[in-house]
Amino acid sequence: MDLRIFTEPQQGASYDTLLTVAKATEDLGFDAFYRSDHYLRMGSGDGLPGPTDAWITLAGLARETKRIRLGTLMTAGTFRLPGVLAIQVAQVDQMSGGRVELGLGAGWFEEEHKAYGIPFPKEKFGRLEEQLAIITGLWGTKVGEKFSYDGTYYQLADSPALPKPAQAKIPVLIGGHGASRTPRLAAQYADEFNIPFASLEDSEKQFGRVKAAAERAGRGKDDLVYSNALVVCVGKDDAEVTRRANVIGRDVAELKANGLAGSPAEVVDKIGQYEAIGSSRVYLQALDLGDLDHLELISSQVLSQLS
């Protein structure tokens, strides 16, 4: 079971804070550092000092880390043109020595688009499908050959399809709860399928849909990695769990029901239940980025039991 740290910087985090967390992620033995791709805080709080851009952040971290994988859950398809995104991600992959992964979604938070003047099209899913075809097509085109694409929303003509990533293939993540279109897209383009903030029952159902779609697409049902993203709140005792839950504005009972909360033993057991339904990777949504002791506890008493 891989454990990865997943952050939500739009709630309020500077690049220096993210760098500190990423270095702790690496030093403490976690597999990867991931971040969301949002420009506006959600819920309470002032969001200070303001948003950071996902791929600018990851470019910086690519040069300041050595081992951990780096990626997004999920890059918003509404934020970037697919050709530009293919160049950005390939460049960051080169900068990292081949440690980048791309989670790509349709984009959904309309308010942040209004706040920063970003178009919010109605046909987001159709655009996402074309973006996936273009990005993977550009990366997969051999050096010296050209790539063209004539879609409904995007057209590319005689692209040199450069630069190339450092990796032979950058892993692509697709995720979500959709019952039909999402599994189909995952079966066609994804190396990993991620379901965010889902119960054991819902995760198992969605994994089953993706596996069935993969087989219909001519892939093996186990060709994909299956993963979960879950909020994490661990404490040495009940008082510490409650304190951490209060800091992030969450209820302990709700966190235990819908996330990974409680003592290290409770969290290890819950992760084991997700593993039993086919999940091999968990993204731990750490909401208090100033609490490095939390990461150390998870490393020493949860990760150590799963390695």
Rank of each mutant, 00 (worst) to 15 (best):
A179M: 09
A179Y: 02
A179I: 07
S180R: 13
S180T: 14
R181V: 04
R181T: 07
T182L: 07
T182A: 08
P183A: 12
P183D: 10
P183L: 12
L185P: 04
L185C: 11
L185T: 05
A187E: 13
A187I: 06
Y189K: 04
D191P: 09
E192W: 00
E192N: 11
E192I: 02
E192S: 13
P196E: 13
P196D: 13
F197Q: 11
F197N: 11
S199D: 14
L200H: 10
L200Y: 05
D202K: 08
S203V: 10
E204G: 01
E204S: 12
K205M: 00
K205T: 06
K205P: 00
Q206F: 01
Q206Y: 01
F207C: 11
G208I: 00
V210L: 06
K211G: 09
A214R: 06
A214P: 04
E215H: 05
G218F: 02
G218S: 03
R219L: 05
R219G: 04
G220E: 14
G220K: 11
D222E: 13
D222V: 05
D222I: 00
D222C: 03
D222H: 05
D222Q: 04
D222F: 01
L224W: 00
V225W: 03
V225L: 07
V225A: 06
Y226V: 03
Y226K: 04
S227V: 15
S227R: 03
A229W: 05
L230T: 07
V231F: 12
V232C: 12
C233L: 11
K236F: 00
K236L: 08
A239C: 02
V241C: 10
V241Q: 08
V241W: 08
T242R: 14
R243M: 11
R243W: 06
R243D: 10
A245T: 12
N246S: 12
I248A: 08
I248Q: 12
I248D: 10
I248L: 07
G249L: 06
G249R: 02
V252R: 03
V252L: 09
V252I: 11
A253P: 01
A253F: 06
L255P: 03
K256P: 03
N258V: 08
A261E: 01
A261V: 04
G262D: 10
A265K: 10
